[in-house]
Simulated scan of single mutants.
Amino acid sequence: MYDFVIIGGGIIGLSTALALGKNYPSDRILVLEKENKWAFHQTGNNSGVIHSGIYYKPGSFKAKFCRNGCQSMVEFCQEHGINHEVCGKVIVATEEEELPLLENLYQRGLANGLKIAKISAEEVKEIEPYVSCLAGIRVFSTGIVDYKQVCQKYADLITAQGGELRLNTKVEKIVETAQGQVLETNNGSFETRLLINCAGLHSDRVAKLGGVTPEAKIVPFRGEYYELVPEKRHL
């Protein structure tokens, strides 16, 4: 029997397994992922931004976790040699009516303890010549990272801790027992004391397998990326 089984091999599932391994080194931990690689869905298909936390309500958990997570992600990448860049970002107002909104965002950033600065339209052009605006905010802590690399390193560290990882293993049924749960998959059954659902956009479906009816339904929206032709890539 396992002490913890985690469903989902994205960044949430893997980071949860890594943290559990650090805090409970003698416990048996298993991560199940239905795809053939880690970070196959949402984690591996996004803009790869390390967010600063400027948009969140000051004092909220979102603001706290985002700010602390930004710092810890950069430190993790530095420690393990993962490709990343703390490039910062610029938020701009392009019309007069957006200037009060930009000021509110600036004050929110200050309240969240971020290193930010007001910059003029001319200063914005020094950073990005092809932006036309009235004013801007420079956020210094925003970065970019390859989250697939992050997840692969998480997987390596989990294995080094003694945790177990299984790809190509889809949970098909969850049975409650007196001791915990039995997970029936396409690759056999696994029994656990505690089950953690980190299945991302499929987490409501996984919850239903366990007899739970979620109050909310996940409705995913697909984003699309466009690649610039070579002669426009300077933009």
Results as ranks from 00 to 15, higher is better:
1 M>A: 08
2 Y>Q: 06
5 V>M: 05
5 V>N: 05
6 I>S: 09
6 I>R: 14
7 I>E: 03
8 G>P: 01
8 G>R: 03
8 G>H: 02
8 G>N: 03
12 I>A: 12
21 G>E: 03
21 G>R: 01
26 S>N: 11
26 S>R: 04
26 S>L: 05
30 L>T: 06
31 V>M: 02
32 L>R: 15
34 K>M: 12
36 N>S: 11
38 W>E: 06
39 A>G: 07
40 F>H: 14
41 H>Q: 04
45 N>Q: 03
46 N>L: 00
46 N>E: 04
47 S>V: 03
48 G>A: 10
48 G>F: 04
50 I>G: 05
51 H>L: 06
53 G>P: 14
54 I>S: 07
56 Y>C: 13
59 G>A: 03
59 G>N: 08
60 S>Q: 13
61 F>V: 13
63 A>Q: 10
64 K>Y: 09
65 F>T: 13
68 N>S: 15
69 G>M: 11
70 C>L: 06
70 C>E: 12
71 Q>W: 12
72 S>P: 04
72 S>N: 12
73 M>I: 08
74 V>C: 01
78 Q>G: 10
81 G>K: 10
81 G>W: 09
84 H>P: 06
85 E>D: 09
90 V>I: 15
92 V>E: 04
93 A>Y: 07
95 E>W: 03
97 E>G: 04
97 E>R: 10
102 L>A: 07
104 N>M: 07
110 L>V: 06
115 K>P: 04
117 A>M: 05
118 K>Y: 00
119 I>N: 00
126 E>D: 15
128 E>F: 14
129 P>S: 12
130 Y>C: 07
131 V>C: 13
131 V>K: 14
132 S>H: 11
134 L>A: 08
135 A>I: 05
135 A>Q: 15
136 G>V: 02
142 T>L: 02
142 T>F: 00
144 I>W: 01
146 D>M: 04
146 D>R: 00
147 Y>N: 02
161 Q>P: 12
161 Q>I: 13
162 G>P: 09
163 G>L: 08
166 R>C: 01
166 R>L: 06
168 N>P: 05
170 K>C: 15
171 V>I: 12
173 K>C: 08
174 I>S: 09
175 V>P: 03
177 T>C: 09
184 E>G: 02
185 T>C: 10
186 N>I: 11
187 N>V: 09
187 N>F: 13
191 E>D: 14
193 R>H: 11
193 R>P: 03
196 I>H: 13
198 C>E: 06
203 S>G: 14
206 V>Q: 08
207 A>P: 00
208 K>V: 00
211 G>F: 02
211 G>I: 02
219 V>T: 10
221 F>Y: 15
223 G>Y: 14
224 E>L: 08
224 E>H: 15
226 Y>D: 11
228 L>I: 12
228 L>N: 06
228 L>E: 08
231 E>Q: 11
233 R>P: 09
234 H>P: 08
235 L>Y: 14
